[in-house]
Nucleic acid binder design. Structure first.
Length: 645
RNA sequence: GCCGGUGUAGCUCAGCUGGUAGAGCAGCUGAUUUGUAAUCAGCAGGUCGCGGGUUCGAAUCCCCUCGCCGGCUCCA
């Protein structure tokens, strides 16, 4: 007999060779129907895999992350089978599951495949699913595997197999389709009840832009039709939160083809919101000991030769600006750090001056690839809430922790809860692409991780994601469509102090080199506002929103009293709009609702004769009448609630 | 930058296989004076993204180019 250990720690005995599906049946009929795949000793296996030794076993269903992965991965096989049936010459490469579905990268050769072709593939997939063909995993020798794909003239699979070890290679059959695959499938295709192919896209073989571009088909599948409907509904809802749509509807920003792509134009309301955010950050930074500075939008070529950016990015940047006379060359500034280094150098520094924290809302320009531009999240001209902290090596960790506090304060004030912290370290192998000493890197990487840990941040570590000059800690937040964006960033830099020969006099009266920390809690105002907009679906917090109150007279007869209300509110520094048109109240309310105005004051006969306002609050509806002072107090109280929660 | 899609009035969109453009909303004018998500009527508004070609004739077909959208690659 063998011992099987379950996730709850319980252990049961079974005959050697028993399969997970038999164990599931043994536990309950319901479970046996629901279970999709098994995790045996922490590895995904088919339910038909015999277990011969003492093992741990987790029976995974649709409710488990890995259960979904197996389901979607298996769906990718069905996608391939459908494509093979319709396009016999298509060559298959890889087809994994992803966070929300699956894809398959396919070389269609000369045939063009477009989104118009998706429905017929989708239908074929459903046909194949209905056949309930079992997924059969079996071992194959490297020679036979290579032979199989060489006959099919599939250089991609051949390349994959060549990198595998003989003895570890498995194929998986379902219906008439065979694929190289390491396993972890659902029992048969019949489990897939609903399929939606979402889009086609180009993707480079092995993610390298020098390689051939393949056609990637994205899809998602479900064990129940209703779940697909729900998912599609959710996607529609998410689109309504898109900051590009809301930005236009709420009059926050615009783009102009004439001005140029990736160059946002801030409209009055957007500017209002943006300036308020700036003020918020400026105040927080003042308390945290930052000093505000201002630097020009351009800098001489020499500045960037010193910083090293000229060599590394010169060719891929906006091209230099030449003056009419002499050989003067300037560049649009792609970052603020070199300027700040020169501010550091403007006077001699003592160890007593450190840390020196220089902050600037610095507008920078970067030549981003055209295909990368995306609303406000990826633009060519943007403003960072930048600051550089120059400190002694022994202050790095403490400064780092203070910045984490600041970022968390910002996130809390704006009700961001779903963020992750990503620690980006060097690539474990290719060390030559990083500058700076091994010792400094090790020290910095360690300090970042310690600081994050002590602050209790939920972190993920990514190797190879560090900047070339130092490791970093990024705060990642998702947009409406679940795409992940980097917002706040904290980066250690041992490079620029070296290149700019920054120094301070220590207590030993010797010259020492400071460490530089780059940090931007918002990241950029553009991206931050984009993600914030999607996060709150345009319902900005009361303290931040451009228009806090709309005053809506029921008829023009009450415009005079309404004007008094408006004056009172403006005097109380409450941002107020006044709709004095001769429209019906229903229409005025509707339009204010669509503008997501937090408060509306409805003014009619009763209000004007009794010096009252009738209050309609966002999300609550009519909350009754009150005097002006009481209303002002209500607004103040709501603002406080946001910060105290 | 690459693959695919797309581009008609300020906005959202219609316009079949080629016969020189239409709706709703917004705007303007007038009427209406209204009680918690759209009052009515009239008017005005477009070199159909730009440039070229095919054709007797192009929003529609072809080529080029620009913007936008979905991915890929990139992101100091």
């Amino acid at each position: 007999m063998i011992n099987i250990t379950f996730p709850d720690g319980s252990v049961r005995e079974f005959e050697p060779g028993i399969t997970p599906i038999e164990i599931a049946k043994n536990i309950s009929h319901g479970l046996a129907k629901k279970v999709l795949v098994a995790e045996i000793n922490n590895e995904l296996h088919e339910l038909s895999t015999p277990i011969t030794t003492n093992s741990s076993l987790k029976l995974l269903t649709w409710d488990d992350k890995n259960g979904k992965s197996a389901f979607w991965h298996s769906s990718a096989h069905i996608l391939a089978e459908a494509v093979q049936a319709l396009y016999p010459n298509a060559k298959f490469t890889i087809g994994p599951s992803v966070e929300n579905g699956f894809y398959y990268d396919i070389d269609f050769g000369e045939t063009s495949f477009t989104s118009d072709d998706l429905p017929k593939v989708e239908n074929k997939m459903l046909d194949l699913a209905k056949q309930s063909n079992p997924f059969k995993l079996y071992a194959i020798s490297k020679a036979d595997a290579l032979d199989y794909y060489k006959k099919k003239d599939n250089q991609y699979k051949v390349e994959l197999i060549e990198n595998l070890t003989d003895g570890d290679i498995t194929f998986c059959d379902q219906g008439s389709f065979t694929d190289l695959c390491r396993g972890g499938h659902i029992p048969d295709t019949g489990y897939v009840k609903a399929v939606k192919l979402l889009n086609v896209a180009g993707a480079y073989w092995r993610g390298d832009e020098k390689n051939k571009q393949l056609t990637r088909i994205y899809g998602v599948s479900f064990p129940k039709k209703e779940e697909l409907d729900q998912y599609l509904f959710m996607l529609e809802e998410a689109k309504k939160r898109d900051h590009r749509k809301l930005g236009q509807e709420l009059g926050l920003f615009a783009f102009s083809q004439k001005v140029g792509k990736g160059l946002p134009l801030w409209l009055p309301k957007g500017t209002d919101l943006r300036e308020r955010l700036e003020r918020f950050m400026r105040d927080a930074q003042k308390k945290a000991g930052y000093l505000q500075v201002v630097t020009p939008h351009i800098g001489s070529k020499q500045l960037y030769i010193t910083s090293g950016h000229w060599d590394k990015y010169g060719k891929d940047s906006f091209q230099p600006i030449h003056t009419p006379e002499e050989d003067e060359i300037f560049m649009l500034k792609p970052m603020n750090c070199p300027h700040h280094c020169e501010i550091y150098k403007a006077e001699p520094r003592s160890y007593k001056d450190l840390p020196l924290r220089l902050a600037e809302f610095g507008t920078v320009y970067r030549y981003e690839q055209s295909g990368e531009l995306h609303g406000l999240t990826r633009v060519r001209g943007f403003t960072q809430d930048d600051a550089h902290i120059f400190c002694r090596p022994d202050q790095v960790k403490e400064e780092f922790m203070k910045v984490i506090d600041l970022v968390l304060y910002v996130f809390k004030s704006l009700n961001f809860e779903n963020f992750t912290a990503q620690v980006s370290l060097r690539d474990k192998v290719n060390r030559e692409k990083y500058i700076g000493s091994e010792e400094n890197w090790d020290k910095a990487e360690q300090q970042i991780q310690e600081a994050a840990k002590e602050k209790g941040l939920p972190t993920i570590i990514e190797y190879g994601e560090a900047a070339f000059y130092g490791p970093k800690l990024d705060f990642m937040v998702r947009d409406a469509l679940n795409r992940s964006w980097q917002l706040g960033t904290i980066q250690v830099d041992y490079n620029l102090p070296e290149r700019f020969e920054l120094e301070y006099t220590g207590s030993d009266n010797q010259k020492h080199r400071p460490v530089m920390i780059h940090r931007a809690p918002f990241g950029s105002l553009e991206r931050f506002i984009a993600v914030l907009t999607e996060h709150c679906a345009g319902d900005f917090p009361l303290w931040l929103t451009p228009t806090q109150v709309a005053v809506l007279p029921i008829s023009e007869k009450f415009n005079d009293y309404s004007q008094k209300v408006v004056d009172f509110l403006k005097n109380a520094e409450i941002r107020t709009s006044f709709d004095e048109r001769a429209e019906k109240i229903g229409k005025k309310i509707r339009e204010s609702e669509m503008q997501k105005t937090p408060f509306m004051l409805i003014i009619g006969e009763k209000e004007s004769s009794e010096n009252l306002v009738s209050v309609r609050e966002r999300g609550k509806g009519d909350v009754g009448t009150m005097g002006l002072e009481d209303f002002k107090n209500l607004v103040d109280q709501r603002i406080k609630e946001n910060f105290n929660q």
